[in-house]
């Protein structure tokens, strides 16, 4: 460690790391398009949330639940009252799609709210304290990791009971493992860095060091994981709702596919098509965004790619 040469992986001085990452992200037109797409979906989800609560507050049947057999199976027509058509009970497909977006965002956010704190906290503790703490946490996550994922999620949902809570807990309580591993490895790397030693020398407590010093330096791991977990959670929710274990009595993308599947055989193609496109769009956007973010934020890739 004598006269170490200046580290080559540092960004050029003059720009903050965050600004540097943002600049890199902006350079990729694809990433910007994805970001915009995510924003559109988020707006849709917010709108859906508004509609949901407005009608609940008014105690009226919301339009996406309104059944009207006289207008059922209407093909999509952009100029009509139902631009994306209606389903077998005459409910508006577009409105239901918006509600599906609402559910998808709820699932993506709620599962992250469960998985990220668990993964980050356990990863930090294991990585920083090492020793017995590390042994116990590694034991916990290797146990979780050895249980077949989807089945585990479904089993949790089964025990918790049908409905959104089962989806949140099932996905949230199983998907922290990967993040925990990453965070642990990163914290281990950082805990012997001189800036951490300096903080210890100044008399900072371990938790202050973990959360104020180390965590901000490894937060890119959390952000990238979040972007890549979000679409995966949405996919799992669709799957669970489709099987009847997830969302009950509300339009979600999974329940929509479930009912559209049978109608597809009667030639009612639009419900299936639009749901598929909606899922495809958000998942693709998040996946590409996650890749772009990883390239922009992960210093390891910075050196190897240039």
């Amino acid at each position: 460690m004598k006269s170490a040469p200046l580290e080559p992986s540092k960004p050029e001085p003059g720009i903050s790391l965050r600004a540097d990452a943002w600049r890199r992200l902006r350079k990729s037109r694809l990433a910007l398009v994805c970001l915009a797409l995510v924003a559109v979906y988020a707006a849709m989800a917010l709108y859906g949330e508004g509609v949901y609560y407005w009608f609940q507050y008014q105690d009226r049947t919301p339009p996406y639940q309104l059944q009207n057999l006289s207008v059922r199976y209407q093909a999509p027509n952009l100029l009509s009252a139902h631009p994306l058509g209606t389903d077998g009970l005459g409910r508006d497909v577009l409105q239901r799609l918006v509600q599906g977006t609402r559910i998808a965002f709820r699932v993506g956010l709620a599962t992250s709210m469960i998985a990220i704190p668990i993964g980050v906290l356990l990863g930090c503790l294991a990585g920083y304290f090492g020793g017995k703490t590390d042994d116990v946490i590694v034991w916990i996550y290797s146990t979780f990791a050895s249980i077949p994922g989807l089945l585990f999620i479904l089993a949790i949902a089964m025990v918790v009971g049908r409905g959104l809570m089962g989806v949140y807990l099932g996905i949230g309580l199983t998907t922290w493992v990967g993040l925990c591993r990453l965070v642990r490895a990163e914290v281990m790397k950082h805990r012997t860095r001189p800036y951490v030693l300096a903080a210890r020398a100044l008399g900072m407590g371990p938790f202050r060091i973990i959360f104020n010093h180390i965590l901000p330096n490894i937060f890119h791991v959390v952000i990238v994981t979040f972007t890549l977990r979000f679409p995966a959670s949405i996919g799992t929710e669709v799957f669970m709702s489709f099987l009847g274990i997830g969302v009950q009595g509300e339009p979600s993308w999974g329940t929509m596919i479930s009912s559209a599947r049978l109608r597809l055989w009667q030639g009612i193609w639009w419900e299936m098509t639009f749901v598929t496109l909606a899922i495809f769009g958000i998942v693709l956007a998040f996946n590409l965004l996650g890749d772009a973010l990883r390239d922009a934020l992960d210093p390891r890739l910075r050196t190897s790619e240039s």
Partner: peptide
């Protein structure tokens, strides 16, 4: 213990990794 810790400080070799880049 805090007082004793405060009275001793350290300067590190590598000026790059010894300052927290996020502060």
């Amino acid at each position: 213990a805090r007082l004793l810790a405060r009275r001793r400080q350290m300067i590190f070799q590598d000026p790059y990794s010894s300052l927290n880049p996020r502060m």
